[in-house]
Design a binder for these strands. Sequence first.
DNA 1: TCTGGGGTCCTAGGACCC
DNA 2: TCTGGGGTCCTAGGACCC
Length: 397
Amino acid sequence: MAKIIAHIDLNAFFATCEVLRDPSLKGKPLIVGHVGRSGIVSTCSYEARAFGVHSGQPTFQALRLCPDAIVVEPHFRDYEVYSRSFFSYVREVTPLIEVASIDECYADMTKALSGVKDPVAFLRKMQWDLRERTGLNCSIGVAPTKWLAKMGSDMKKPMGLVLIRRRDIKNVLYPLPIESFWGIGKKTAPRLREQGILTIGDLAGAMERNDPILQAELGKFYQTAKEWIEGKGSDTVHLEAEDPKSVGVSETLMHDMQGYEEIKRTLFNICKEVERRAEKEGKVGRGCTLHVKDTTFKTHTKAASFDMPTRDASVLFEKASALYQTHYEDLEVRLIGVTLEKLGDMAKAEVQMSLWNYEQYEEMDKTKLLIAELNRKLDHPAIMRLSEAKKGDKNDD
DNA sequence: TCTGGGGTCCTAGGACCC
DNA sequence: TCTGGGGTCCTAGGACCC
């Protein structure tokens, strides 16, 4: 039986949280983000969007477009609290939710909507109830698969509600520009446009023809995208958050820097922060990667492995420093970062360690055997005589 | 004074082993 | 004496997402 999946996405989440923190900001053009050398807009209110301000834009550019905008530094701790209240509301409607990020989730609504006469009214009520309870606005996409639901929630903001049945795919999705395809970004979209693929419908058409150029262009993603667009994508909502596979910290420097001496302090602090976050996750890693962004925005990476799983900042710092000094001493850098990888649980790592110790112990045991063997040989009459002779020497002294 | 920081997944090439 | 082929693991780089 077909499932009913909802994708629920909070609108202008960080900006909305800031208004909840300080109601005097309501109705004003608001930018959440950093000011300063490399500040960008994290999120902005709809009032600011009207001026052409958008996420990812350098803050100074945004302020040129909208000089009256109020810039607020983000308060992530508070966003996490609002985020939790959002998820707990959705969990009251259905416990089958998959947290996709701080401001969005998938919900399997199959059971919650069974027997509901007017699903649209039910979902509308959800939106208003959430707003009343938490002050947060959301857009909802409802569809038989997660990808279709995600596409739906993206289509109308704020407080949008879009239902996409399989038979609606052609009417609803095909006319959309190729850029709006979730999974096709700013590198692939222009290349598809060059091939005459301007809309999602064009993409679907090329896939029906099994276009070999398109297949080469998209690689493994071709098959995934084909299934998504045909309504055959995943409808499985994963309740448990997956264990992180890496923990990393990076920082854009106050100014471009060159040489280890200039960056070592920052590098050390980054390693300390990686250690702190790995500890919070209860993880240790078997390797690390040093990231460096040069002044042309090109990113370089160098990886190293550890003999033993660790999260120790001094071990990280030692590895990262060595990598930096051997590869980037002469590079002018904008950003540096360190990522701890190949993560495992600390508890399991301790088991590994005790195994390792046991092997060490065994090695030691072998050595003991060798010594015993040696001692037996030393018991040989000839050796005895030799040692007796030594004693004799001593006695001669 | 241009362009953050946190992640995941994929790809291509090389090393290594059988 | 002119060069196998498959599998796996690792590294570096890149695309994409929020």
